[in-house]
């Protein structure tokens, strides 16, 4: 930031004297051209579908000529949104993922941060091995991971449960009271390594002389981690925080897979499951309204989080 500012402040006078008016008027299309590979798919596969979903969410079904008569879709304004916001099941599912996020995200990020700091410390051995080992779960497709855990949770199939039962008594991992945290465990297992890698990469970008200076001043490794590394990591932590918030609100794979083995996951367990269920029963408009609402909620929460953590950084 500071580097940019000084460069910007120094550059203009030189430029102005060397090259006068013309270049300022000439449009430079090169950057736009290089952005195309991003923007074309972004427009086609993100903005257009979102726009279409929004359009769908403003419609409703009408029928003339009795039960099996003619079906038409008509414009209904924000009627579907009223349905969505008044749907206790949907609100319940949002509450469930928010609770999930409040517990799981801090735990996971703390774990990721700890692992990254350990890997970055001077005493760590076999760094390359551990870096990959922690990251491997992220490389396993979500459905497979969820299936694998489902088997580990099932009281009749799991060696883990059998072992726990021998020592004491195993919790009912697939019961309704434990389900949310069983899912949390799968998510943590999958994404801790991924988040750790982002944090670790940020640590690598820190120039070594800062640490050297600290050490010369007599700071211990723990002190360096606490006083220097963690403050420097703030942007990386914010980034992983936002990713996690988005991922949490969109929880789908794990509960959907666990449904095939547990009797305690309903069709509206998470907001995404609820929207999926609606869409597969031919109620596209309400499903679209639900999706748009969810997207908005994700947007608000992510930016709220950024604003909140950003303000804290300033004070």
């Amino acid at each position: 930031m500071t580097v940019d500012r000084t460069a910007a402040a120094a550059a203009p006078p030189v430029k102005n004297t060397a090259v006068p008016a013309p270049p300022r008027r000439r449009r430079n299309w090169a950057p736009a051209f290089f952005l195309l590979p991003f923007f074309i798919p972004f427009i086609l596969f993100t903005l257009v579908p979102v726009g279409y979903a929004f359009y769908q969410s403003l419609l409703k079904t009408e029928r003339t000529g009795g039960t099996f008569g003619r079906k038409t879709t008509v414009f209904a304004g924000f009627e579907q949104y009223k349905e969505v916001l008044g749907d206790p099941e949907f609100l319940g599912s949002v509450g469930r993922v928010v609770l999930f996020g409040l517990v799981q995200i801090p735990l996971m990020l703390l774990l990721a941060l700890t692992l990254a700091l350990l890997l970055d410390s001077t005493v760590a051995r076999l760094k390359r091995f551990f870096r990959i080992a922690y990251f491997v779960p992220y490389g396993i497709p979500g459905v497979i991971a969820a299936l694998m855990w489902a088997f580990l949770y099932d009281p009749r199939l799991s060696p883990v449960v059998e072992l726990l039962d021998k020592v004491g008594s195993a919790p009912d991992f697939l019961g309704s009271s434990m389900m949310l945290w069983s899912i949390g465990n799968i998510v943590t297992w999958t994404y801790t390594g991924y988040n750790m890698l982002i944090i670790y990469a940020a640590l690598q970008a820190v120039p070594g002389d800062i640490y050297e200076a600290a050490r010369m001043d007599g700071a211990s490794e723990a002190k360096i981690a606490w006083r220097i590394k963690i403050p420097i990591l703030r942007p990386a932590l914010m980034l992983t925080g936002v990713f996690s918030i988005i991922g949490t609100l969109q929880l789908f794979t794990e509960p959907q897979v666990l449904r095939s083995i547990s009797t305690s996951v309903t069709s509206t367990y998470t907001p995404n499951l609820a929207a999926y269920s609606l869409a597969s029963s031919d109620n596209y408009s309400e499903a679209a309204a639900m999706s748009v609402t969810l997207a908005l909620a994700t947007f608000v929460l992510s930016f709220g989080f950024l604003k909140f953590t950003g303000r804290k950084a300033e004070s």
Partner: peptide
């Protein structure tokens, strides 16, 4: 943009 595109797709509401 997407609104335009969808307006085109959604021309046939019935």
């Amino acid at each position: 943009l997407p609104l335009l595109a969808t307006a085109a797709c959604g021309g046939t509401g019935t």
